[in-house]
Nucleic acid binder design. Sequence first.
DNA 1: TTCTAAAATTGAGTCAATTCTGTTTTTATG
DNA 2: CATAAAAACAGAATTGACTCAATTTTAGAA
Lengths: 204, 204
Amino acid sequence: MSGLRARQKADRHRRIIEAAAALFREAGYEGAKIEAIAAQAEVSIGTIYNYYQNKGDILGAIVSMEVNEVLNAGRGVVANPPANVGDALDTLIGIYVEHSLHYLSKEMWRQAMAISTQLPDSPFGQAYTGLDRALTEQIRALIARLQALGLVRRDIDGPALGELVFNNMNMMFIEFVKRDEAKIPELRAAIRRQNRILVAAIGV
Amino acid sequence: MSGLRARQKADRHRRIIEAAAALFREAGYEGAKIEAIAAQAEVSIGTIYNYYQNKGDILGAIVSMEVNEVLNAGRGVVANPPANVGDALDTLIGIYVEHSLHYLSKEMWRQAMAISTQLPDSPFGQAYTGLDRALTEQIRALIARLQALGLVRRDIDGPALGELVFNNMNMMFIEFVKRDEAKIPELRAAIRRQNRILVAAIGV
DNA sequence: TTCTAAAATTGAGTCAATTCTGTTTTTATG
DNA sequence: CATAAAAACAGAATTGACTCAATTTTAGAA
């Protein structure tokens, strides 16, 4: 009762994702034809659509893995933040940003973001919203931690601040992936400059 | 020498936009087939593609009109802002948000935003980035005005603050259009709550 | 008015995502 | 170990955005 069907299913999922990831990387999202992904994964076109509702969902599965890694890496910072509000935010955001292009190219990010706003109710659209929320929650957790440590004023509206910080960072990241020539250090510097206003306001 | 060719051109542009706007409204963006737009505008498919590079650019032309109206409406607030930082921001943002669904449905906004991140170098992608920048500049202008009026501390980094306010608002707006059931008053209240943190920090 | 080059229009054809329907494989049951 | 129902698979057919070569229209010179 080991479930032959379940095993085959997991295997096919993996093969499809691996084939798609390789082809997205080589040929870009648009350039990676479903037919080619199917061939490389050794399944038929129909099977791909049995596993994923549409091409975007395949990319979605890859993006989710990436963001979950980022969330994991962020936990360390929340547990043990630098003893300075500006550095704490910068460190967490640094992890997000630096990790972001590990597996995903800017083009893949653009596609993923586009799909998530175009089809917010598709499986990936909902997953993406969930990931954004998780990132927001992590920033909120960091702020709560800093408040507990006495580094941020207790009367600050932590949840709203967390959302503000996330929204600004996310928008900056969107603009960043839209411009191929934009560089990570400049992105980080720009976000730091914006956060400086907040840091000055909320520090004890 | 009134330019027959130029007149016909303008007329066809108008007919295409009107047909598209009507069909987008009736059938949604995806539901509005190019063939149907062409038929309603009484031109051929090829002609549409002579005027616009792709379907997204047609939507882009409509979005641009809408945002330009919003920018115009915003000028009054910048010229004559309420004598209170929180109200000033809220009034300007209120204009943006309240106008936003006049001509464009949430679905159209979703498509427009998706296209602008998917194809940042297409005519519409670049135009959309320009519109975002114009909105950012208007918020910056308001902040500069408030600084000149002595309502905002002079030592505040105005440009960075303007970008922060815009980015947060824009991200909130994106989430707003992604959820059909989200309501404008709640959106405005959430943004006000976030801005309250800033207002407290920057007021004289 | 007539003619020619440039500009614009046309719609049949191409391409790739997605759907659909018949077939095969797996599972569970007697 | 048959066997029927359920699940998964395959790939041909459909669909709709976009292209392109042929045709038509316009501008303006002779």
